[in-house]
C-alpha cells in the first residue's frame, strides 16, 4: 500500500480502482470519438450515394501510393505502441522508452507524408474553395468529393497530431522512471487512443482512395 500511495489520487481507494476508472474513462471517450467520426462517414455515405461517378473520378486523382505507404506506417506504429505496452507491463524501462520513441517517429512520419500529399493536391488544383480546377464533367461534385476528402483526412490528421504529442509526453515520463509494472495506466490508455486513430484510418483509406481502383 505505502509504495503506491503517491500515485493514487485522494478520491480513489486504491491503485486498482484508479486504473479501472482511467481505462473505462478512455473507452467511453473512444465511443464519443466513433460518433464524432460517424458524422463524417454519414456525410460521406450520403454524398457518395448521390454522386457515385464524381466520387470515382475524384478518388482516381488522390495519391494512392503515398496513402498506401502511410497505411503501412500507421499500422506499424500500432505494433510499436503495443510493444511499448508489453515493455511497461514487464518493467523494461529502456525498451519502453525506445518503443514509445519509435511510435512518435512513425506518427510524425505519417503526418509528414500526409503533408507531402496535401502539397501535391495543392499544386494539382485539388483544394476546394482555395485552389480548385477540374476540367472533366461534374466538376462541382468532384469538388464536393475533395471537400469530404480534406475534411475526413484533416480531422484524422488532427487526431494523429494529438496522439503524437501525448505519446511524446508519455515517453518523457517513462524516461524519468514515472512507470512501474504496478503503475503504467497512462501508457495503456494512450495506447487505446492510438489504436483507435489507427482503426479510423483503416476505414478512411479504402473509402477515399480505393473507390474505383479495383
Amino acid at each position: 500500500m505505502a509504495s503506491v500511495l503517491s500515485t493514487v489520487a485522494p478520491q480513489f481507494d486504491d491503485a486498482e480502482q484508479q486504473r479501472a476508472a482511467a481505462t473505462l474513462g478512455m473507452w467511453i471517450f473512444l465511443a464519443t470519438e466513433i460518433l464524432f467520426f460517424g458524422v463524417l462517414f454519414a456525410a460521406y455515405t450520403l454524398t457518395r450515394v448521390r454522386h457515385p461517378e464524381a466520387f470515382a473520378a475524384g478518388s482516381r486523382l488522390t495519391h494512392v501510393t503515398l496513402a498506401s505507404l502511410n497505411t503501412g506506417v500507421l499500422l506499424t506504429s500500432s505494433l510499436t505502441m503495443a510493444l511499448a505496452g508489453h515493455a511497461a507491463r514487464t518493467g523494461a524501462r529502456r525498451a519502453l522508452v525506445a518503443w514509445l520513441g519509435l511510435t512518435v517517429a512513425l506518427g510524425a512520419g505519417f503526418l509528414a507524408i500526409k503533408g507531402i500529399e496535401y502539397r501535391l493536391d495543392f499544386t494539382e488544383h485539388l483544394v476546394p474553395a482555395l485552389n480548385f480546377a477540374y476540367a472533366g464533367p461534374r466538376a462541382d461534385q468532384v469538388e464536393l468529393f475533395f471537400f469530404v476528402y480534406f475534411l475526413v483526412t484533416g480531422v484524422h490528421a488532427l487526431h494523429v497530431f494529438i496522439g503524437v504529442a501525448a505519446i511524446a509526453a508519455i515517453a518523457v515520463m517513462a524516461s524519468r522512471r514515472a512507470f512501474t509494472p504496478a503503475y503504467f495506466t497512462p501508457v495503456e490508455v494512450t495506447g487505446l487512443y492510438w489504436h483507435l486513430v489507427d482503426i479510423v484510418w483503416l476505414f478512411v483509406y479504402p473509402l477515399l482512395y480505393l473507390v474505383s481502383r479495383a
Partner: peptide, 29 residues
C-alpha cells in the same frame, strides 16, 4: 453530443469556405 459537435463544425467550415456537404448547389444535402 459528439454528433452535434461535428455537425456544428461542418456548419462553421461551410460558412468559412463557402463549400460544404449541406450545400444543395454543389449536390450536398
Amino acid at each position: 453530443t459528439p454528433v452535434l459537435a461535428m455537425t456544428l463544425f461542418l456548419i462553421a467550415v461551410e460558412r468559412l469556405f463557402g463549400i460544404g456537404v449541406f450545400d444543395p448547389a454543389l449536390g450536398g444535402g
